[in-house]
């Protein structure tokens, strides 16, 4: 299809026929990604609203319940995720420079860090499940004021949704890692790396807010 509409310029294999130029296509892809990120923010905003509403309703329950969370584990995960953000940004930079090997290396780091994050999460979750610090009707832990069960509902919903995004992130990171091993990216075509990067930074952004709200604020 695209060959039938050659406009005389270069023709990149990933250049779709309905775009005049590759940069136009790249910019469109990025704009689409930013719009997608906008909706992601709205998606998460609802659980934040719910969290604060319940905190307003049950201040004591939330305070006592949040003290049962482990600040060291939370901080560790924050550091892990921030570092993965750095490696992701470096992967994009390598892609900009057309260095597919560098992309592979940095994406490898990012995936590894994401996995570490999930492992830490696993230990946190299993601790909660053991103690019965669970949502709603599953809540069996004793000794916390009214509203603690809602705190754990929100804890699991918020970190669960975020974790789901991490898992999806690992999937798409792996996908572009494979594409990078095939040398598919170049200085003029690297939008997939960049867009996955934007997604990954968003996951990090959400955690930047989740961490203090859930673990820290007294």
């Amino acid at each position: 299809m695209s060959t039938a509409h050659a406009h005389g310029g270069h023709h990149h294999p990933f250049h779709a026929h309905h775009f005049e130029t590759l940069p136009q296509q790249e910019a469109s892809a990025r704009m689409g990604m930013w719009l997608f990120l906008g909706q992601e923010l709205l998606f998460f905003s609802a659980v934040f609203v719910a969290f604060f509403v319940f905190q307003y309703m049950y201040p004591e329950g939330f305070l006592e319940a949040h003290r049962t969370l482990s600040i060291p584990l939370g901080t560790l995960n924050t550091l892990v995720l921030l570092t993965s953000s750095l490696t992701m940004a470096l992967a994009v930079r390598n892609a900009q420079l057309g260095d597919n090997k560098g992309v592979v290396k940095q994406l490898g780091f990012t995936i590894a860090l994401a996995t570490v994050f999930m492992i830490v999460k696993y230990f946190e979750y299993s601790g909660k499940i053991e103690k019965g610090q669970l949502p709603g009707q599953w809540y069996t832990y004793e000794g916390l004021p009214e509203g603690a069960s809602i705190f754990f509902t929100m804890y699991f919903v918020m970190t669960g949704l975020h974790g789901l995004h991490i898992v999806i992130g690992i999937g798409v990171l792996a996908w572009i890692l494979i594409r990078a091993t095939k040398n598919q990216f170049s200085a003029e075509y690297y939008a997939p790396v960049e867009n996955v990067g934007l997604y990954w930074h968003l996951v990090d952004l959400i955690w930047i807010f989740l961490f203090p709200f859930l673990y820290l604020i007294e």
Partner: peptide, 9 residues
Amino acid sequence: ILLSSLFAI
């Protein structure tokens, strides 16, 4: 786009 999202939030 970002500001519009933040406005809605």
